[in-house]
Amino acid sequence: MHATPSPPGRTRGRPGPALGAAGAVLVLWYLLARSGAVAPGLLPTPGETAAALADSARSGLLATDLGASLARAGQGFALGAVTGGALGFATGCLPGLSAAVTPVISFLRPIPAIALVPLATAWFGIGETAKRLLIAYAVLLVVWLYVHDGVSRIPVSHLRAARSLGAPAHRRFTEVLLPAAAPALLAALRYGASVALLALVAAELGGADSGLAYRLQVDGQFLRVDRMFAGLLVLGLLGVAVDLVLAAIGRRFVHWSAS
């Protein structure tokens, strides 16, 4: 029996430097807030921010907003990732389709999602559908780009080898195309997740009755800077957490690739 050796390319970031940097930022933040360099009431201390966060956690507002935002971002992301991924595979495999679709997407891609909020509202109203579709659209574009690029770079010799080894089409897809595209797919999902958060904020600022970005807007109107800081902190932590989860999944499934 052969023991399975640890697959290559498994590198893990150490938490030490990251925690050190976070500590340094907290200290600098505290000193700046206490120094009086910023007008009073415009820069809360870390402690005041934590208090505002605890407050919204206790009142249940945090859970409501987090739930609403996560549901929107999650559903939009799932829809965008599935359609973008499928389209990326299709255009990556079929040069004829790619020639037709690529110019269209290249035109649409540079238009920021936030610019589409008024149009989405006009078409779908201010309900959840508009928000989900906006997020899905933004995610679709980046996931398509990464997957298309990854699939079209799969070495032709891999597919030729599979065919000359007698693998039928369904095996060539599941056992060659999918794993060969997996590193690109993972990169697509990580980037897509960050874009989903960006689009989420744009969508909620366009009109909502709950959500992390909606709450930021409300807190802004009342100049509750401590609450705004707490909200930004939650958005940042959410992004980091999602990326860590996706990266961990990637290390598990895409162990042969260094990225």
């Binding site: 070495p155 010799s157 891999h158 030729r160 080898a161 065919r163 000359s164 080894l165 007698g166 056992e175 060659v176 794993p179 060969a180 997996a182 895409v254 162990h255 042969w256 690739s257």
Partner: peptide, 19 residues
Amino acid sequence: RGPGPERGVVFQHYALFPW
């Protein structure tokens, strides 16, 4: 008419599946 398992191929750059 196309590739087939009765004709095996060894490629210059191996074409092994890295996964």
